[in-house]
């Protein structure tokens, strides 16, 4: 007998006897059960047996199987009345403005308008969503100390006082959506090769705000504005810095024309960025159209 068969017999001696518990079926003697159809062998994909879970007939949103639904239960209230007509002014806090100035994102040696705020890239404006410009909010008004010539679209009394106490000037001015679209991406607008549009007058419900000297409106009388500056200084109790004696008097007194959109550029001009020339209209009809 060979060695290996000897070994095998030895192992067999140690193993238990063959019985029903340790034998298996002959190969091929048992047939496999039915092949299930579908992805998981014909099971229910985790949706349970019967009912709305399996049929996926979900109730519509807010439906409460016959109850008076929650979303119809309460009396109506005109929360959103006229929302599509009201102008929106996304806020910019004075704290943020101070940070933009301190981090050299805004040059204070030139007048600051919406274009320079938008060019920082940290303030976004969407005229198609009824947004009409910057609303300068009073957060951080206590620590504001930059002397600037600022033009925003909405400001309250405290903001005006904080700017003027620091020796600056502020103007509130209105831009129509077409002008705003030109200001958002100036390069893109100039590349279109269309003349700079003239700024439209504010709508009737905004005229009052923008011609009010207490709001420093751009349509207000300059003499009345200087009176209001003095009155506000007395109200808040600070000494009004004299901008007449200031070194940057010319910069501080620079204002846009009510029809003007960009500083230094007039409506009707075409800016050619490729040839670096500015084309100005000469025809009398055009000059009359773009005159303020």
């Amino acid at each position: 007998m060979s060695k290996s068969s000897d070994k095998a017999l030895n192992i067999l001696r140690a193993l238990p006897r063959v019985c029903l518990a340790n034998i298996r079926d002959n190969p091929g003697s048992k047939q496999r059960c039915r092949r299930g159809r579908g992805q998981h062998g014909g099971d229910k994909h985790g949706d349970g047996n019967k009912g709305s879970g399996q049929r996926q007939n979900f109730m519509r949103l807010g439906y409460e199987t016959g109850n008076n639904p929650f979303y119809l239960r309460f009396p109506q209230e005109k929360y959103y009345k006229g929302h599509h007509l009201r102008r929106q002014y996304p806020p910019l806090s004075m704290l943020t403005l101070q940070t933009l100035i301190d981090t050299n994102r805004i040059d204070t040696s030139k007048p600051i308008d919406l274009v320079s705020i938008l060019n920082t890239g940290l303030y976004k404006l969407y005229p198609d969503q009824h947004q009409f410009g910057v609303h300068l909010t009073d957060e951080g008004a206590d620590i504001f100390n930059a002397k600037i010539n600022l033009e925003v679209q909405w400001a309250n009394e405290l903001v005006i006082a904080a700017i003027e106490r620091a020796g600056g000037v502020i103007t509130t001015s209105y831009y129509d959506p077409h002008s705003l679209q030109a200001m958002i991406n100036t390069v893109k607008f100039f590349q279109k090769g269309v003349p700079i549009p003239r700024r439209m007058m504010p709508p009737p419900d905004a005229i009052e705000y923008y011609s009010d000297p207490s709001n420093r409106g751009y349509l207000a009388d300059p003499d009345k504005i200087s009176e209001e500056r003095l009155a506000l200084a007395q109200k808040y109790g600070y000494n009004l810095p004299k901008i007449e004696e200031d070194n940057n008097y010319d910069m501080l007194m620079e204002r846009k024309d009510p029809r003007q959109i960009f500083y230094g550029l007039h409506p009707g001009w075409v800016v050619n960025l490729k040839d670096k020339v500015i084309l100005k209209p000469k025809e009398e009809e055009l000059l009359q159209y773009y005159a303020s």
């Binding site: 119809l72 109506q76 209230e77 929360y79």
Partner: peptide, 10 residues
Amino acid sequence: SVKAVIKRFY
């Protein structure tokens, strides 16, 4: 949008 929601809620 469901207009009934806009009329009743804010």
